[in-house]
Design a protein around this nucleic acid. Sequence first.
DNA 1: AAAAACGTGTCAATATCTAGAACATAAGTT
DNA 2: AACTTATGTTCTAGATATTGACACGTTTTT
Lengths: 250, 250
Amino acid sequence: MTGRVDSTLSKGLSVIEALAAEDKGIGVSELARNLDLTKSNTFRLLQTLIIHGYVKQDQNKQYSATMKAWKIGQMIMEKLDLPRLSISQMQYLSSITGEAVYLSVLDGLSTLYIEKVESTKAIRTYTPKGGNAPIHCVATGKALLAFNYETLREKLIGNLGSYTDKTITTMEALDLEVAKIKEQGVAVDRGEYRAEVLSIAAPVFSSNNEAIASIGVSAPAINLTEEDIEKIIHTVKQAAQSLTSTIKDI
Amino acid sequence: MTGRVDSTLSKGLSVIEALAAEDKGIGVSELARNLDLTKSNTFRLLQTLIIHGYVKQDQNKQYSATMKAWKIGQMIMEKLDLPRLSISQMQYLSSITGEAVYLSVLDGLSTLYIEKVESTKAIRTYTPKGGNAPIHCVATGKALLAFNYETLREKLIGNLGSYTDKTITTMEALDLEVAKIKEQGVAVDRGEYRAEVLSIAAPVFSSNNEAIASIGVSAPAINLTEEDIEKIIHTVKQAAQSLTSTIKDI
DNA sequence: AAAAACGTGTCAATATCTAGAACATAAGTT
DNA sequence: AACTTATGTTCTAGATATTGACACGTTTTT
């Protein structure tokens, strides 16, 4: 095992992450305490980050994150450009089901929502994309999990957090569920993360057949009959397949 | 001058940035060459970045950036809470013009409307919050485009979709338009997306002078005299500048 | 007016990172 | 098929960049 890490880089990244999580500015001392670093070490890291534009200091000497990380993130997002490719399928799904439609990608042991079409029922506010949920509970997560199971399985051992009484919490149950999802090509979650919420999702594949994203619908269980669910399952599968072939054509 | 930088951290950040700019995966050797670093040094930095989740390696041993940076960026964006900060300026603009006011951000090659104040007039345009429009047609889009032109220009080549006979469809015309917008600090769209709709918008800058959003007014052309338009242009510019300074104060 | 806490500098000691060579494996070339 | 030249990865000695403790001037709290 060669895998030692560059501690300076590690610490620097921790600093950025800490600042991004902070919703106001923060001083060196407090930051150092939070991260369990020395004050002078933290100070030096901050100077470096300022030079690179990731951090700024306000007139009260408080440090905070800039938009640089956001810009880098935008660049990464743009190059994938999944949202643009998916939006028509998502809108179609939305029009058919009337429920919230999500496009998400893998992010560690979570699903990260990178695009969303609001439910036509909820009139409400702009919900920032970028939310996430545990991979083993929600449909978009399970769809991604099933088709990346070789690399993810071991990491989930001991990490099957429980959220409702429906949550899958044993590897045996998960193995079965994954097998089922791979066979059927769709993942269904009946209240495994939020008790009264049901979600249905299917994987989207890249040109080299990696499951890079999943597209799915999420709705209050109360809205749906068993018949509706069957129909949505079918529609979601079709949307995902259609999106996959769009991607492969590029 | 105490300000020396942590070179390891600097190099690590350069690696992330390089990977973010790359639109396909890249190997250690090539990356090392591009960044003028040693292969082993680059390798080590990549390992560290992988552990922190910023980088992944595909089955062909190619390295590429993950969505982690994007997620960090989202967190920063959220805490900025642009909609909340803008609402008073937007309401002011609305009260002056009586037309629909939009706040939007970049989303691929589109503008995404993240906040809106409805027109008070009887004849009005309607674009829902969360909706979007092509970046090269509407004013909010053009304002963002002009001030992010280095990164966006090449992606627009061959993607200048036409919507009306006023739509800009050649890169030559776009280059000129962008230059004009940058000079004047405002973008105007006279029916380039919807024939009878006129829109006017100006960019909002973050503390490190990135154009992160734009604020604008949209109205049926029939509502406005040339004089009205001039007045709105002025007012929109002011509102955007005011919003920019609010943001810089944070 | 003292005391505590803050951001910022300094500097020697050493733990950290670096460069370079060496390895295994893959891709190209003759 | 052999040879050549890529590639990604591992190893280690050794230089040096990074570190933490301490010091300093300010601001805030007691």
